[in-house]
Write a protein that binds this DNA or RNA. Structure first.
Lengths: 172, 172
DNA sequence: CCAACATAGTAGATACGTCAACTATTCCGC
DNA sequence: GCGGAATAGTTGACGTATCTACTATGTTGG
């Protein structure tokens, strides 16, 4: 669009926000992944999949529902579920009503592991993030993030299936 | 430590902030990576390495300096630099003063590619993030992220070498 | 001096994430 | 109903990230 469009570099305020945010996430994700890996047998992706499944009364979801819930693409879900099935955390079941489809079901072992992992993970989230911020700061972060997210819904070159409401990790 | 320590789940405010933030990053990183991949021959990691190098007058850094600058671990830097050297974006040079060491130097080709990629990347950062937020919101994000980052420096189980001041991506 | 230790970087194994290409079904309009 | 489009899921290749273990060099204190 814009004919030549001079590049508008980030000013001091913009750069500060962008860098701080990037860096925070780098460290936060790294630390949370490490905490899970060292205290449990689960990876972070394992964790969010198990949370999504155990949020369901029957402990199962279609693969595409899992993709929508997590905002992942189907191929990622497929690979992840395959790996988890190999380790006995979930099972795959054929779906009666749609013969293309499959359910992912959490196994007893999967339940045991997520229940063992959740408290430590939650403590880490609190220690590293939640408990550092005031309620007002938490709200400010939420508002800003939601504004940015709304922007994605609009621009919507839409490669990811546009996750309904929920997010990753949930409240646990 | 804590004897039994009931798990304190996230309340509504906490969960909202945590989920929104997680989700924003999922989408933001995905979109930025896709923009780079489709408009240029560079990946996001390629990009940040080249930014770090071209910020230097001589366009080179020791591997461990690169690790500190980016907050990456040495093994990650080594692998990344090896791949980039294979593609001719950087060169490795032996270091005279310390024979264990090596410099990473940006090549002419690396310079060309980063210069071609920067404007589009920056436009995407603006479109998706910066320009969505008010200056006050940017400041709020920066303050919150910096608080959280300071927490890492303190807790400091210190696995990552604790990056001095700078962050990833920089202002470009 | 030199032994112990720290530091710089590499290498391999494994897991993760994306893309593109593919099969198998279901949906839908005519 | 049937032929084409959309949908569900899989697969393989490749790049990326982490961990552990390793080599080689530098540093230091007795």
């Amino acid at each position: 669009m814009e004919p030549v469009s001079e590049v508008r570099w980030l000013d001091e305020r913009e750069e500060r926000a962008w860098r701080a945010l990037q860096f925070m996430h780098l460290r936060l994700d790294g630390e949370l992944a490490r905490q899970l890996a060292s205290d449990t047998g689960l990876s972070y992706p394992d964790y969010v999949v198990l949370v999504a499944l155990t949020d369901r009364p029957d402990g199962r979801l279609r693969l595409f529902e899992l993709a929508e819930t997590l905002g992942w693409e189907k191929s990622r879900v497929s690979h992840q579920v395959t790996r988890m099935a190999d380790r006995g955390l979930v099972d795959k079941q054929r779906c009666g009503s749609d013969r293309r489809g499959a359910y992912v079901v959490v196994t007893a072992r999967g339940r045991r592991e997520i229940e063992a992992a959740a408290p430590g993970h939650l403590r880490a989230v609190r220690r590293l993030f939640i408990d550092r911020l005031t309620p007002a700061q938490l709200d400010a972060v939420a508002v800003a993030a939601e504004v940015v997210l709304r922007g994605f819904a609009e621009t919507a070159t839409d490669r990811t299936p546009a996750p309904a409401q929920p997010g990753p990790g949930a409240g646990r």
